[in-house]
Computed example of a mutant assay.
Amino acid sequence: MSGVKRTAKKGRPLLALFLLLVLLASGSVVIQRFVAPPPTFLMVSRAIEGEGLSYRWRSLDDISPRLVQAVIASEDSTFCAHNGFDMKAIERALQANARAEKRGSGRIRGGSTISQQTAKNVFLWPGRDWIRKGLEAGYTVAIETVWGKRRIMEVYLNVAEWAPGVYGAEAAAQHWFGKSADALTAREAARLAAILPSPRRYSASSPGPYVRRRTSRIQAAMGTVREQGLAACVLG
């Protein structure tokens, strides 16, 4: 019996630490529902490496609705319908990755929603380990519950990387087009969305063939987003 008591006592500090971490994480989610997030792990690490940091927070009201439509069209067409996870997209990604592994191509396809990407960018470090993926799932549920879709989109557009050292829609619009994010045309918004998967590789202002083709597909899909109200949870 005394052994059980000693084990229980030893477990108390771990339980207290766990509860403290949960409280800190929960508090951070609640605070950032109303306050702009600080620079992310990725921003800070890249700045330390010497890339610089261009990060300008803008309210969603000061970002062109065309960019909202473009990222929904390109990144997450079911954004307004899911609760943080798109199981069909995850299944498709797993199947595609299994086929790629068989071919030996090594190309990894993701199935993350905008909510998952936002949770990862704001709260976690870069990487693909299982601990980080587990925390990402937890934070995704938290921001879907506490923030709601409009806030998730606002934060996503403000912390996404759009070029080396360039983060957020305002900095991206200035960097690539020399204008504010609220003045982006449909074509410019589609170009920004087109380079999102590899913003360190592609140019939005002087696009190559791949980005031009992807831009055209995204612009066409933006019409579907408008017609079917796929951005209604953000734009009303």
Rank of each mutant, 00 (worst) to 15 (best):
A169P: 00
A142T: 08
G168V: 04
R151L: 08
A181Q: 08
Q174N: 14
I195E: 05
A169L: 05
G223Q: 15
R217T: 13
I152S: 05
A181S: 15
V225C: 01
A193Y: 04
R151P: 07
Y167I: 07
A190R: 09
W176S: 02
R151I: 08
R151G: 07
N158E: 12
A221I: 08
N158V: 07
A183P: 05
Y139Q: 02
W176D: 01
S198A: 15
A181R: 05
A163M: 09
E136V: 06
S180T: 09
G148K: 06
A231Q: 03
A186Q: 11
V155N: 10
A190F: 08
I131F: 15
I152W: 04
A204F: 02
Q174P: 00
I152H: 03
A171Q: 03
E188W: 01
S203I: 11
P207W: 06
A204I: 02
T215R: 13
G208Q: 11
W162P: 00
G138Y: 08
G138D: 08
Q219C: 05
P164Q: 14
M222C: 02
R201C: 00
R132C: 09
R214N: 03
L184P: 03
I131E: 12
R226S: 10
R217W: 13
G165S: 14
V155Q: 12
A172K: 01
T140Y: 03
C233Q: 01
T140L: 08
S198C: 10
G138T: 13
A137C: 11
Q174F: 07
S203M: 14
R128D: 08
V141F: 15
T185N: 06
P209L: 13
G165F: 11
A204E: 01
S203V: 11
A231H: 05
E144K: 02
L184C: 09
R132G: 11
T224N: 00
W176M: 05
L157W: 00
T140N: 05
Q228Y: 13
P197D: 07
E154R: 03
T145V: 12
R214H: 03
V159C: 07
R226W: 07
A193G: 12
L192T: 05
T215C: 08
R132K: 15
V166H: 07
